[in-house]
Design a protein around this nucleic acid. Structure first.
Length: 418
RNA sequence: GUGGGUAUAGUUCAGUUGGCAGAGCGCCAGAUUGUGGCUCUGGAUGUCGUGGGUUCAAGUCCCACUACUCACCCCA
């Protein structure tokens, strides 16, 4: 028995319609904002993620699926969606198109993690990217896309948390302030915080240890150390959100774990799923394009976890689309009729009607049971009577109502009735 | 990488002080004429996670391993 790799999931035929529904609403929402799809490869050169995502992040340090291909190139399965888009933006000269350039993607992403509720080794993300606009309106629009999508799915619940972690300039003065605030207290904090102190002090704010939380409760906040430009940007963003009716809370502890963020960061957090409540996370990354070798361009975007989103919808019993049920089942009256039923089914498909017939040599009664369980809307028995008279009885399974028509009229009748 | 929980049929789960491996759901077939749902009858499906140990005897007790799961870290 070979089983499924750890942290991956099968989507079975009986559940696939939920994904189709989700993807349909997502694409429509993106397109309503004038955002077009971009598809980039599932794997990239490892170097892209080292430079894009950042070589101090956990994602790059311990979670990437990296291997040498047969040409000895170091290849990595994408651990997030943004770096590949940035690469494509540069490589295809998209900077020369009218800006801003608004793109979305739907993609699997891969991270070598210990799975738990809402966390997988392969999951799927919907992401959007706006390149070429430094305006806080772009930040706000990105958040509005997520909020609009949630609303269309019937969700009001994920709470928008926003923060600004400032540009590299603000960061320097902030890190100094934080280190001096923590001072001797750092020795009382958890081991990972002590490590963060040197490596990435910002992350200390994100610690969930009770003791650390106590110490950081009154710690300096990044938003109090913003340079004038960053400060103005963050204030304008908040007023745009307010006037657009997008509710939010300023959460100074949102710091994000990817190095490319500058300035605005945000998360939509849900309480409807386990401990992993962030369903959408993003922000601004004005240095990413230049970091991966392009001409500097401002950018803002988010990634949204589709498995988590689906989990929320399921937990809240929200609409998830309709199971895709076939229209008609042609039940052979006997084994001898199977061949004719097979031909009739094919004619119906050519006429644009989804049709099935028996492939197992079932009895008529068993065929009826099968059609009932599979959820066909109609059943027609195909046998000697029908062949002789040239007429079939279309039985509607919901109430047993029967419509009689000629073989050549089946498609027409079904199209009218469904 | 760290910690807790769990592991018996396709699935959800019972299984007593250690004594012949079970149920519900699902699946298949049937209940006289060519018609589903309800009901009834019958049937198939097991390396009791794997490997050791204790014992006359282990699904049950002990040890190790593996997998799953939840949580930490981190992220969506």
């Amino acid at each position: 028995m070979i089983n499924i790799p750890k942290g991956t999931k099968d989507v079975l035929p009986e559940d696939a319609y939920k994904w189709h529904y989700l993807e349909k609403v997502i694409r429509k929402t993106a397109e309503d904002f004038g955002i077009r799809e971009i598809r980039t490869p599932t794997f990239e050169h490892t170097e892209l993620f080292l430079r894009g995502v950042g070589d101090t992040t956990d994602i790059v340090n311990k979670e990437m699926y990296t291997f040498l291909d047969k040409g000895e190139r170091s290849i990595t399965l994408k651990p997030e969606g943004t770096a590949g888009v940035a690469r494509a933006y540069i490589e295809n000269g998209l900077q020369e198109l009218p800006q801003p350039l608004k793109m979305y993607y739907l993609t699997p992403v891969f991270r070598y993690e210990r799975p738990q509720a809402g966390r997988l080794r392969e999951h799927h993300q919907f992401g959007i990217e706006i390149y070429g606009s430094p305006s806080p309106y772009a930040d706000a629009e990105v958040m509005l896309v997520a909020k609009t999508l949630f609303a269309r799915l019937g969700l009001t619940e994920p709470v928008l948390n926003i923060n600004s972690i400032g540009c590299p300039e603000c960061r320097k003065s902030y890190n100094a302030a934080l280190r001096s605030y923590l001072g001797d207290n750092i020795s009382k904090m958890c081991p990972s915080c002590r490590e963060r102190f040197d490596k990435n002090p910002l992350r200390i704010l994100d610690c969930k240890e009770a003791g650390c939380k106590e110490i950081t409760a009154a710690a300096p906040k990044t938003i109090d150390y913003l340079c004038d430009d960053c400060k103005t940007h963050f204030e304008e963003l908040q007023s745009i959100l307010t006037s657009s009716g997008v509710a939010f809370v300023v959460n100074p502890n949102i710091v994000r774990g990817l190095d490319y963020y500058t300035g605005t960061v945000f998360e939509f957090i849900s309480s409807a799923i386990g401990a992993q409540g962030t369903v959408c996370g993003g922000g601004r990354y004005n240095n990413l394009v230049s970091d991966v070798g392009g001409k500097s361009a401002p950018a803002v975007g988010f990634g949204m976890g589709l498995e988590r989103l689906l989990m929320i919808l399921e937990n809240l019993n929200l609409y998830l689309g309709e199971p895709e049920v076939p229209i008609i089942y042609l039940a052979p009256a006997s084994r001898d009729d199977a061949g004719f039923a097979f031909v009739v089914a094919n004619r119906l498909r050519e006429a644009g009607v989804s049709a099935d017939t028996d492939l197992l040599g079932r009895s008529l009664k068993s065929g009826m049971k099968y059609a009932d369980k599979r959820g066909y809307k109609y059943v027609a028995v195909i046998g000697s009577e029908e062949r002789e008279s040239g007429m079939v009885k279309l039985k509607r399974m919901s109430d047993g109502a029967v419509t009689e028509c000629g073989f050549d009229k089946i498609a027409e009748v079904l199209k009218c009735q469904k």
